[in-house]
């Protein structure tokens, strides 16, 4: 279980996160929704180690990880994607996914400089693993050797997820993966996410596309103004008056 407990974060006078508690289980999709400025992305940055928290703890399968730098978070089994696509644009598509194998590389720096047979072997394995993932993410083979930055946007999104999966994570955090996708691409993405979760990975989905979240999530957390205002199954959340208020701005007691 990926557990976020009592996490708070201030930026000067702004309380970006206030005592946030969220849990995400393996093998299912956990949705995280909320209006703009609710603190979703800040929370994502805290979990993945890009910014520190003022208080609270983040545990990955019972191991405390708060304060670890991003590359160590990756080693603890948490990997993320980015809201504004962070592609290694000038690499070939397959190489972008090969980068995801970084934490599984055993060869030393010196061995790489000498390009020992072990390194060649490791390179080949990494490319084979990357090609497998590209197949799983339905990226056509004709794209594999093309410059990643030249791929259509929807495919770059898939390549980004393939790169994240290449790290063999326990938890996959997706920051608005459906942004910029059309309805068809979006529902295909939902299908893919469910498959990823079926494979044993805990998927945390931060999204503006409410339909997507409600369709694929086993549990949904709703944030507003830096705190969690509701959680539950999609249908419970949908009928929660606080959630309706946060989204529609209705007055209520």
């Amino acid at each position: 279980m990926l557990a976020i407990r009592h996490v708070s974060k201030r930026f000067g006078g702004l309380r970006a996160l206030r005592d946030v508690n969220i849990e995400a289980e393996r093998s299912c999709v956990t949705g995280l929704i909320g209006p703009n400025g609710a603190g979703k992305s800040t929370l994502m940055n805290v979990i993945s180690g890009f910014i520190g928290a003022d208080e609270g703890s983040v545990t990955v399968d019972e191991a405390e990880t708060i304060g670890l730098p991003p590359h160590r978070m990756c080693a603890s089994g948490v990997v993320r994607t980015f809201q504004n696509l962070q592609m290694f644009s000038d690499m070939s598509t397959v190489e972008v996914v090969v980068m995801g194998r970084t934490r599984h590389r055993r060869a030393s720096l010196a061995a790489n400089l000498l390009m020992t047979p072990a390194v060649r072997h490791e390179e080949r394995d990494a490319f084979l693993a990357a090609q497998d993932l590209l197949v799983r993410m339905d990226v056509p083979e004709s794209f594999w050797l093309r410059r990643a930055g030249d791929l259509p946007y929807g495919f770059q999104r898939r390549v980004e997820i393939a790169r994240a999966l290449a790290t063999e994570p326990a938890y996959l955090l997706l920051d608005e993966p459906a942004a910029g996708l059309n309805d068809k691409e979006s529902s295909a993405l939902g299908e893919t996410l469910r498959k990823i979760a079926d494979g044993g990975i805990g998927v945390v989905l931060i999204e503006h596309d409410i339909d997507l979240v409600m369709n694929v999530s086993a549990r949904v957390f709703v944030m507003d103004a830096g705190t969690v205002i509701a959680s539950g199954t999609p249908s419970e959340v949908r009928s929660n008056p606080d959630v309706v208020a946060a989204y529609l701005g209705e007055e209520h007691d």
């Binding site: 993945s48 590359h71 962070q86 980068m99 490791e122």
Partner: peptide
């Protein structure tokens, strides 16, 4: 040339293209 054609060179390029994405897949920037 060995650096350029192995994981080390790729990691260097990754750091240049997106340091945050590189860090997120386990590169110690």
């Amino acid at each position: 040339g060995n650096i350029a054609s192995t994981q080390v060179g790729r990691s260097l390029l990754a750091v240049k293209m997106s340091a945050s994405a590189a860090a997120s897949v386990g590169v110690d920037v």
